[in-house]
């Protein structure tokens, strides 16, 4: 990784640390600054309220030319998070072809918070969960809350 990229990550961390968005905690390791650990509280107005989710943000070598990679380390029942041990997300500005260098990690984190409140059904990674969200909202809410109880307490 180039020194420019490192400088930029440091700068972004400094900004985040100075003004961390509500409901999150960023764990930053200076030895390994390309991997951020984020503890995210389920937003109050969402069905994930009360859950605590661990996320991992990995910066590619080409950062900021390529988007950071986001993965949920805590299992979550969500149409935009892959239902496997990777817990990966790929939508919106996280897409390589939509990512632009001026975008920042903090906007990525805000996007994730927003998605917890309202999933992006049209851009889902788990079509079955997206379908359930559309067709059977009660069942979806129940499942999502179950998972919060089971994995995110």
């Amino acid at each position: 990784m180039s020194t420019g990229a490192k400088k930029r990550i440091m700068k972004e961390y400094a900004e985040c640390a100075a003004d961390t968005p509500a409901g999150m905690k960023i764990i930053f390791d200076e030895q390994n600054m390309t991997k951020w650990e984020v503890l995210l509280d389920g937003p109050d107005q969402s069905i994930y309220a009360g859950g605590h989710f661990k996320l991992e943000i990995t910066f590619p070598n080409e950062y900021p030319f390529k988007p950071p990679v986001v993965s949920f380390k805590t299992k979550i029942y969500h149409p935009n998070v892959s239902n496997d041990d990777k817990g990966s997300m790929c939508l919106g500005l996280l897409r390589p072809d939509e990512w632009k260098p001026p975008n920042k990690v903090v906007s990525v984190l805000r996007l994730i918070q927003t998605l917890l409140i309202e999933p992006d059904i049209d851009d889902s990674i788990e079509p079955s969960i997206a379908n359930e969200y559309k067709e059977n909202r009660k069942e979806f809410d129940k499942n999502a809350k179950d998972w919060v109880k089971r994995y995110a307490k």
């Binding site: 919106g92 500005l93 975008n103 920042k104 903090v106 906007s107 805000r110 996007l111 927003t114 998605l115 309202e118 992006d120």
Partner: peptide
């Protein structure tokens, strides 16, 4: 979401 991100970008 789009406008939220947009909002996020106000920063």
């Amino acid at each position: 979401i789009g406008s939220r991100i947009g909002g996020a970008f106000n920063g």
